[in-house]
Write a protein that binds this DNA or RNA. Structure first.
Length: 123
DNA sequence: GTTATGACTTCAC
DNA sequence: CGTGAAGCCATAA
């Protein structure tokens, strides 16, 4: 099985199947790992903290590629609307993320969104 | 080489 | 608050 349908080169350190040695990925993983429990950050925010102000999509791409066993708190990353990723609803991942956040004390409104002004992580 | 797509953001209307 | 357009960038075809 040579053909890697995932990114070339896994990253055991982060427990994810993302390229190792890639500064962007390393920075993104580091930032997300620094998100305190009970707080959340947006993709753009993570990208900015990682030194890539407008590479929010890159953050999302990395997260989608993470392994289920990853140690990275991916559930603390939400979009700018304060809602979990839309594409996750395809496999029910949005419910998982929401539950994980609620377990950490995050409250959702009737539209499945959280108060970013209240929950946004500040460094 | 081009075109389309995507765990996104931001501004304008 | 919803929608559309422009921006960004790697992957897939």
């Amino acid at each position: 099985m040579k053909r890697s349908l995932q990114w070339p080169g896994a990253n055991p350190r982060t427990g994810s199947t993302v390229p190792r040695g890639d500064k962007a990925v390393e920075a993104i993983c580091a930032v997300i790992s620094r998100i305190p429990k009970g707080w959340v950050a947006t993709y753009g925010q993570v990208a900015t903290m990682a030194g890539m102000s407008r590479r929010a999509r890159l953050v999302g791409r990395v997260l989608q590629h993470l392994d289920p066993k990853t140690r990275i708190p991916w559930h603390r990353v939400v979009n700018a609307k304060g809602e979990v990723s839309c594409s996750l609803s395809r496999n029910g991942g949005d419910i998982v993320q929401r539950r994980l956040l609620e377990k950490e004390g995050i409250e959702f409104d009737g539209k499945g969104r959280l108060d970013l002004e209240r929950c946004r992580w500040r460094d």
